[in-house]
Design a protein around this nucleic acid. Sequence first.
RNA 1: GGGCGGUUAGCUCAGCCGGUAGAGCAGCGGACUUUUAAUCCGUUGGUCCGGGGUUCGAAUCCCCGACCGCCUACCA
Length: 501
Amino acid sequence: MDEQEPHDAQVDTNKIIEERRAKLQALRAQGNPFPNDFRRDRLAADLQREYGERDNPALEADPVRVAVAGRMVLKRVMGKASFATLQDMSGRIQLYVSNDGTGEDTHAAFKHWDLGDILGAEGTLFKTRTGELTVKVSRLRLLSKALRPLPEKFHGLADQEQRYRQRYVDLIVTPETRRTFQARSRVIQSLREFFVARAYLEVETPMMQPLPGGAAARPFVTHHNALDMQLYLRIAPELYLKRLVVGGFEKVFEINRNFRNEGISTRHNPEFTMLEFYEAYQDHNYLMDLTEQMLRKAAIDATGAAEVVYQGERIDFAGPYDRLTMPEAIAKYNPQYKLHELSKPEYLKLALAPFEVEVFPTDGVGVLQLKLFEQTTEAKLVQPTFIVAFPTDVSPLARRSDADPGVTDRFELFICGREIANGFSELNDPEDQAERFRAQADAKAAGDEEAMFYDADYIRALEYGLPPTAGEGIGIDRLVMLLTDSPSIRDVILFPHMRPE
RNA sequence: GGGCGGUUAGCUCAGCCGGUAGAGCAGCGGACUUUUAAUCCGUUGGUCCGGGGUUCGAAUCCCCGACCGCCUACCA
């Protein structure tokens, strides 16, 4: 369907907007109402930090001249003098505008400016009677007229839908939203520092792939016109990153988007950010140690402490974290099950009977354990917990355990009942990998839309020799949710996917 | 996909057992030179999400639909 209707065809409007348009028209008559020749020299938070403690006599004895700019978010007019609160990227600073300071004409014009307008102000600092640091304005300019009114100044924006759809408004009026995304930036910065400090190379691998690989998920499909070929948005970077390890980049990481054509929920967005990293000559046990250090640092860098509170639960990222096999975890959190019985298929099938899970005759012990784990235990793993030794059947890219070929040297990290990380010793045997791809391809042919494709070039890469390698992926959005106490993944994604308005 | 809840002024929200639309903020006009969600006086502003039905009469009750939120399922 072609729906290229012009954007201004359906402009919603109201009396307030009309009045502001009229004000803008009047401004146009006096010159360009969107000047770009004002330069600020200070940010609000810097002023608060540097001069917030200074008393008024000190400020007046040694006048501090400043030029500030920002959005007017509060305004109090009192006749011959007014106060306004300006908000910039760093915080807020109060302005004192008066006939004495700016002259009557400017002050009179200011009275007609609106909340939401962008202003530039020059003046000197002083403290009001109540001790608030304030700029006594000598020059004041309107830099950008806002035509649309801001949400109610006290309650802000409560409508979740509008907060997601119009994030720009949410960011203006909701301090928690600003803090969340600032914390998100610190988390990613922290992770990047962590790897760079360990001599990892940051790389970028294809987002558009001829074969989507590295995970079990339904992909988005697109089309390249010039090549006349189908391409998939990637569901994971894994197979490309391991190709780089073959190439001799023995420590690599990538922080970038994955795309999965699946449901949307408070924990799923169609595009989400993934950290993946690979290190040659290491194994899954090393990864678990590394993960503990990494998450401890990320928590401290994001929040100032290794212990955070998520939705009322205290989460301790300091480590070390529990490391349990699935049967161990099931028995630990569900004493009704006996550990020594949990490796018996008949016992597991009996245990699974009360749950609404499909059990297939082909399910091995490992898969049965996984199903029981998901039903009984996953949600109870509040503190960071590594679950180790995943069944080979559900781990087509992981190295088989030397002790038990039915399981792999793979772990997942659970926090607050959610999977946060997934790591393993990589399968570097090209013949074993080819066999597992064939099994996946068979499953796909049988109708499993999430089964993997057979990736012949990846097999060819393995045939050149992949060193023994450990690799891991961490869902950044879910980690940021935990570190910012956000109940929905949409709260940590600036522009989450929504149905069109 | 299933269940529950929501949608009323630009924003935050009331609106009872069905009787024909309200408040605060914002806006507009006025007073006010140290306010702090400034205050005080006056005042403008509505496709009650959309469509159908019941009724003398629907924001209100019923049905269908849209969108959003939460839970649940699926999704490693």
